[in-house]
Design a binder for these strands. Structure first.
Lengths: 341, 341
DNA sequence: TTGTAAGCGTTATCAA
DNA sequence: TTGATAACGCTTACAA
């Protein structure tokens, strides 16, 4: 049973008294093997505890059973939830998940490119909106790939994300329903499509309510807590105060709440605030943040499923899968304060 | 350059006009190759963009360059930071990191055991305090392995963690220095060594201060937010109130603060609270949580370094590496309220 | 210093 | 339905 060296197909063949070819067939195309033979083989497998040597198999087949997942920052708590979805889906199809992170360092990207080149991964999941392999990427042969959150800039790669416009609409519609008219948008000017779309949702919502965006209260940050705080400062300096802040993500919203708190205001009594993403922290801010939830595990699951489809069909079934984001109502939104009514 | 099929060692050999053996040597033992030959080979490698096929190499060598990381829950935010340390260290030594999670399901564990059996990983990093492979684990041949956080129960496996006793001492000493005498400990009765050690640190600190633990205020929870809340309820029911709560981890501390808040008390004015771990949320609780920081990235780095050492030497350099946990002072601790003085 | 050739454990082709 | 065998790309005795 527990020998010093793992059983090979040859051990199984010897015990089952058949050839190794038959063993291989009994495993992969059992219908091509006589019942009695298959039985013998299965017994021999049970006896030896045989498992196919993945190295040999991959070498022979010319492809591995590993999927490389490259993210700019695997330390991001958002990432780990998606990873769960990715890993579950992969494993249930016989694939393993390899982790890589670039930290936006092109040198790192290059290492992963080499990695792919040496046939170590059959497919690629990309969290970055851009191929992280420098200009080499253009000439490189990439394996089937799928993006997460947004399309990959310089490659015609299908992706799985969330309907950012719809999500943003849910936030803005809530604010408007509560009676807000002057609603600031604190955006992210970096070039992520997701962020642009959230702003589009904001504008669409304002338009639909017949308000129209007031550009004086549409601010561009960079998605960090600090940029949320700064946005508040700017607005106070300019003296163009909204009654509510719709933020491009939770980090920004947290910054806005900190900025408001520092000036002695109460959320949601004095100002309402919404986020986007529903990061784990959103429960613990005070007040707890009303935000839009990204179905992270599900995103991971769909992304991996799409990739596996690509791997078997070769044809991308769809080029874009957008999941439905949900409004999570907590305590950072209320009707506008008296001053606004 | 970007042909349809990756270059093999044979392509390189042909262009360099040497044998494939020489190419292999030029790569792995360059000192055994004439300078001029090495030059030719390097040029040919540059021209072809050759990368060693990892499958073939692993098959030939009988071991892969992958490390399997098995955690009960990769969705845990604590995990992702450690992963950063693990991955960096692994990659800089030519190893890749494979992710697996068991969610405490023995069936899952078994799948990973098969995975290991099929030679897909050269080493194993375990986050669970117990071999997650069921009873099969006993008879199984495991590759070199390293535990994270605590020793692996049923295997003589070296591990990297934090000095929990010292960490707990830092928390209890702070509380005592602030003037607290009646300090509750909210523990975790599950069998994790780390949790037992934290309690030992608590007791040692109380003893050192000449107080001695009052068993009526030493509670056993299960490390969840809910169990922290429950602990508070228990204490109020029993009417044996402490002036401070030292909690076995941050989750518990958050629960305690929630419980206290629900009863209308203010932290730290009425009660002081400490946590352990310094999870990302600890910054966002109100008040921000004073806690003990685990150097997570460093733990990952050390764990992987130890494993790689094992992989090359075969001998565990040390059987236990304990890193120093740091006190992080935020706003959940102050001197006891008047009632206690 | 270099080349020849065996063999790692599979899968797939071909023949029986 | 089964078996013999070539090939996947590499490393490493062993020989030259």
């Amino acid at each position: 049973m527990s020998n010093s060296t793992p059983a090979t197909i040859e051990d199984v063949a010897r015990i089952a008294e058949v050839s190794i070819a038959t063993v291989s067939r009994a495993i992969h195309t059992p219908e091509k093997v006589a019942n009695s033979t298959r039985l013998k083989v299965n017994q021999a497998i049970a006896i030896t505890g045989y498992t196919t040597n993945a190295m040999a198999r991959s070498l022979r087949l010319g492809r591995s059973n590993m999927i490389l997942v490259v993210a700019p920052d695997i330390g991001d708590p958002n990432f780990s939830n998606i990873l769960v979805g990715l890993e579950n889906e992969a494993r249930s199809h016989g694939y393993g998940v390899l982790i890589g992170h670039t930290q936006n360092d092109p040198q790192r990207g290059l290492e992963y490119l080499k990695f792919l080149n040496s046939n170590q991964a059959a497919g690629l999941i990309l969290f970055t909106g851009i191929l992280p392999f420098g200009h080499q990427a253009m000439t490189a042969r990439l394996p089937p790939s799928v993006g997460v959150f947004e399309p990959v800039f310089n490659g015609g790669i299908p992706y799985v994300g969330v309907d950012d416009i719809e999500g943003a609409r849910k936030a803005i519609d809530l604010l408007i329903a509560e009676g807000h008219r002057k609603i600031a948008f604190v955006g992210d000017s970096r070039t992520r499509l997701a962020h642009r779309r959230r702003r589009m949702g904001y504008e669409a919502g304002m338009d639909a309510a017949g308000i129209g965006a007031d550009l004086r209260i549409v601010l561009e940050g960079d998605g960090t807590i600090e940029s949320g705080r700064l946005a508040v400062e700017q607005l106070f300096m300019r003296d163009t105060l909204p009654s509510a802040f719709m933020c491009v993500n939770d980090q920004t919203a947290i910054g806005v709440m900190i900025g408001l708190g520092a000036r002695g205001y109460d959320v949601p009594r004095d100002f309402s605030v919404t986020g986007f993403d529903d990061v784990p922290q959103a429960v613990f801010t005070s007040p707890a943040l009303t935000t839009i939830r990204q179905p992270r595990t599900l995103i991971g699951k769909h992304a991996m499923a799409l990739l596996l489809e690509l791997l078997s069909d070769g044809q991308p079934a769809e080029t874009e899968i957008l999941l439905r984001p949900d409004l999570v109502v907590r305590n950072s939104v209320s009707a506008p304060s008296r001053a606004w009514r």
